[in-house]
């Protein structure tokens, strides 16, 4: 009898767990569902009180209007360029530096690494005013490079990848050197593939940051043609307050790339984030 009640109790608690988790799912996705439904509504449907949940007819007009209202394609391209350049640069520079700090001895290594760590401790906002001044002095305000220049170099990325390289066994590399492999080759062909979860999670976090960032692009690029999506949508929200289907259509197009990227690399990303969490 004891066993019987125990399994019934287990079944009951499993149902409760599912109910709570599904409740959480509803809270997590409701705003996205609303965004999605609204984008297909007419303006009067969107503004109706009490709210209309489903649009009568699926129409794509709001997607067309948003592309017309803003130089949407230019802004989208700017965001793609800025995010992709940032990711490529960070992965290249940080994996090189991370490897060097983990495996090579060179003069002033400890001092330089301490300085890198110190940068990591400072909140990002702290650097913004002088960074802005540098961009201004270089004559780069309202240009595409202004969007990504300071973000190409990352103390966090360097530290993260150093931790990944440190966790690899030294014997792997030694074996390669015995076989006559050069340092550069060992780095590119043996070590780099082994830190893939680290590269993926740094890549996604960087992409997410560059794609979504608001304050920096808003400060350096004020002309619409050079904006990224975040400031442009926020600007549009102020301009066209009442065109909800339009701004929701813009929002959907803006969030989709990051979601796809995350869905594709989910497994490695979680591995990487988990790694940083435990080591951090």
């Amino acid at each position: 009898m004891g066993l019987h009640t125990k399994s019934r109790k287990n079944k009951f608690s499993t149902i409760i767990v599912y109910l709570i988790l599904i409740g959480g799912v509803v809270i997590a996705v409701a705003p996205f569902v609303w965004m999605f439904l609204t984008a297909f509504k007419t303006n009067s449907e969107a503004m109706a009180i009490p709210p209309v949940i489903f649009p009568k007819q699926i129409r794509l007009t709001s997607f067309v209007t948003i592309v017309d209202k803003l130089p949407f394609i230019t802004i989208y391209t700017n965001t793609v360029i800025s995010a992709v350049v940032t990711v490529i640069a960070q992965l290249t520079f940080c994996s090189m530096a991370g490897y060097a700090y983990a495996r090579i001895d060179f003069p002033f290594k400890n001092v330089l690494f301490t300085i890198t760590l110190a940068v990591l401790m400072v909140p990002g906002t702290f650097f913004i005013l002088p960074q802005y001044r540098i961009i201004y002095k270089l004559g780069l305000l309202n240009s595409i490079p202004a969007l990504f220049l300071p973000n190409l170099f990352s103390a966090m990325g360097t530290f993260l990848l150093r931790q990944f390289f440190l966790s690899l066994p030294q014997e792997l590399e030694d074996a390669a050197y015995i076989d006559g492999c050069s340092r550069g080759k060992a780095f590119l062909l043996i070590m780099l593939p082994l830190v893939k979860p680290g590269l993926v999670s740094l890549g996604i976090l960087t992409f997410k940051f560059a794609w979504n960032d608001l304050m920096w692009p808003m400060i350096v690029n004020t002309s619409t043609e050079k904006m990224t999506l975040s400031p442009a949508l926020s600007f549009m929200q102020g301009q066209y307050v009442t065109d909800y289907p339009g701004i929701m259509a813009g929002a959907i197009m803006a969030v989709i790339p990051v979601i796809i990227l995350f869905a594709v690399f989910q497994k490695q990303f979680i591995e990487g984030v988990a790694h940083t969490g435990i080591k951090g």
């Binding site: 705003p31 609303w34 608001l214 999506l229 975040s230 929200q237 929002a251 803006a254 969030v255």
Partner: peptide
Amino acid sequence: IKGLSIFRVIYFLPAITMSVAVSMV
């Protein structure tokens, strides 16, 4: 529980979404 990776992706959605899009809603 079943469907762990689906739950994980869904719960993670708000964290990776552009704050501008989120705050609009």
